[in-house]
């Protein structure tokens, strides 16, 4: 079959490797994170390799080289499968609150099994040290959850130490800040406790305000956190903390209230009464899921070990010191 031989050509492999490189560069300079051209290049290389396995007895007879190429094929297939099943999302959880299975935003493959509603954990707050120049150091976030036997477990997680529940991995991120906790008493119905997450701190130190809508209230409510001084010092080591002395400014239309912690001020709004309860923190988590990762690691390890084995056999046939 001459067409199969042509498909298996090593010259075609070279050309396809060049095409793949060009596709990667095109995606890189075009600002694309995922490119059909890269997928096409990898698929074409997989076909070329399969054809090579069929028509080249030498490749089949060289065990380590065969293993290396089969592992490469497995990597391509697993990467493709990973794109179909993955999930990547973000969620913000208040200190002392439970994550209830809902993400703020996400991006997922069409075959993602969606078991996130089984996942629950409580954020018990965090500690973050800062080096001079507001350089964020390690994040230590205490979380707890119920295991399969219904017993409570807890752990300290961080940027590089995820909480893994039902295959979902929760990582802390740079995105965290303060939350204003309010009690909302509607004209009819039970009171509701809710929080307004302010923009991330200290990344948005000068924009500690947020606008939101209350049920039954025609216009949005605006609130701002104000405090004096430098919370995290820029010129020396520091730590993320709640301000000792602060006030909360609330605006509705052209009316304004200055709320001080400890004072029980009720804000009368068209649909009910709003009360500031306390200031807390929230943590923004990165959530990922990809069941192919352990298999990818296995395939990649097999590939590189087989390649090393192949070269070892080849190079031990002649001395390294050239005559």
């Amino acid at each position: 079959m001459p067409w199969l031989a042509r498909l298996a050509s090593l010259r075609l492999t070279l050309a396809l490797l060049g095409v793949l490189g060009a596709a990667i560069l095109a995606a890189y300079f075009g600002g694309l994170r995922y490119s059909p051209a890269i997928a096409a290049g990898l698929s074409a290389l997989a076909v070329n390799l399969l054809a090579n396995l069929v028509v080249t007895p030498r490749l089949r007879q060289q065990g380590p080289l065969l293993l290396f190429h089969l592992a490469l094929l497995a990597i391509i297939l697993l990467v493709a499968l990973g794109r179909m099943v993955y999930l990547r999302g973000q969620v913000e959880v208040l200190d002392g609150e439970e994550f209830a299975g809902q993400l703020l935003r996400h991006d997922a493959g069409p075959w993602h099994p969606w078991r996130l509603d089984e996942v629950r954990f409580v954020n018990h707050g965090f500690r973050i040290a800062y080096a001079p120049g507001l350089l964020r150091q390690q994040t230590r976030n205490r979380v707890s959850w119920l295991n399969a036997r219904g017993q409570e477990e807890s752990a300290e997680i961080g940027d590089d130490t995820p909480l893994v529940l039902s295959g979902y991995r929760f990582y802390t991120t740079w995105n965290k800040g303060f939350a204003l906790v309010f009690a909302w008493q509607p004209r009819r119905g039970p009171p509701v406790l809710g929080s307004v997450n302010l923009p991330g701190y200290p990344a948005n130190a000068l924009k500690q305000a947020q606008e939101w809508r209350l049920p039954g209230v025609p216009e949005p409510v605006w609130a701002m956190l104000q405090f004096e001084g430098e919370l995290i010092p820029e010129d020396r080591d520091g730590e993320f903390r709640l301000p000792d002395d602060y006030r909360v400014v609330v605006r509705y239309g052209d009316r304004r209230w200055d709320l001080v912690p400890g004072e029980d001020t009720a804000i009368d709004l068209p649909g009910g009464q709003l009360r500031f309860v306390e200031l807390r923190t929230w943590m923004g988590y990165l959530v990922t899921w990809d069941a192919t990762i352990p298999w990818l690691l296995l395939a990649a390890t097999v590939a590189v070990l087989a390649l090393g084995w192949h070269f070892w056999r080849e190079f031990s046939r002649r001395p390294w010191n050239p005559a």
Binding site: R88, D159, D160, T161, P162, R169, Y171, L286, V287, T288, I293, L297, A300, T301, A303, V304, L307, G308, F311
Partner: peptide, 20 residues
């Protein structure tokens, strides 16, 4: 071989450090 190992080790680190 070592470049390939570097990519694998980097991928393991990136998964832990940045979730991908």
């Amino acid at each position: 071989v070592f470049h390939s190992l570097m990519l694998i080790a980097g991928a393991i680190w990136a998964q832990d450090a940045w979730g991908r």
